[in-house]
Design a protein around this nucleic acid. Structure first.
Length: 203
DNA sequence: TGCCAGGCCCTCTTTAGGGCCTT
């Protein structure tokens, strides 16, 4: 499978539209089913972390006081990612923050996002639910560390994506997996995914 | 003042409602 940049944000809440900002980002580069490069940084956007979020992520206001600015981190991570296609677990969430934080440094996203949540709903229908941690356990993937920290979650999403790619090869006969193919699969109605995959067999 | 995310997906649906997922 081609190179994919798997990203995960920790933030102060659910949407930049509610004045929430990013507090940490991690990106891992997935190549041929393996993580080959990593970027991670806390980021100080000048906002307070609510107590609930500090409890959830372990990222405190004290930790952010000494962190590099959001602008500096976004410049670095944008350089790190380049035009590598992106993926996240529930990409609608990370895409909102990626686009917002990138917009603040006057940059625009050039590539699509794929979503491991939408893919897992189609390819792992027997899982108890489709939370990142549940899928990791269900597929017997490695424990990557503390959940709700950006690098642990990005590694989990990358391992899950590699697992899904292997399932597409093993169970569905797909050979060359591109990011575009993943994006197209996540748009197929869930009830029709098996029928749809038959068309790709041998590709 | 009062609002406070939003797209996906299922179903006892489509003139709608509610759970799932991310922090």
């Amino acid at each position: 499978m081609e190179r994919i940049a798997v990203i995960d944000f920790e933030t102060t809440g659910l949407s930049p539209n509610s004045n929430c900002r990013a507090t940490e980002i991690a990106v891992v580069i997935l190549e041929q089913g393996r993580i080959v490069e990593r970027y991670q940084s806390l980021m100080n956007a000048g906002v307070r972390v609510p107590a609930f979020i500090e409890q959830l992520t372990g990222i405190s206001n004290a930790m952010l006081r000494t962190a590099p600015s959001a602008e500096q981190v976004m410049n670095e991570v944008n350089e790190f990612v380049g035009i590598t296609p992106l993926l996240a677990h529930n990409a609608a969430f990370d895409q909102k923050f990626w686009d917002y934080e990138l917009g603040r440094i006057k940059r625009t996203r050039l590539q699509n996002f794929a979503c491991s949540l939408l893919l897992a709903r189609r390819l792992m229908p027997a899982a108890p639910d489709h939370k990142l941690g549940t899928l990791t356990t269900f597929a017997s993937l490695p424990n990557t560390g503390k959940a709700h920290r950006a690098m642990a979650d990005a590694e989990m999403a990358a391992n899950l994506t590699a697992h899904l790619a292997e399932e597409l090869r093993r169970k569905h006969g797909l050979r060359e997996l591109s990011h575009d193919l993943l994006v197209s699969l996540q748009k197929v109605p869930a009830a029709k995914i098996n029928e749809h995959l038959k068309r790709y067999r041998g590709f």
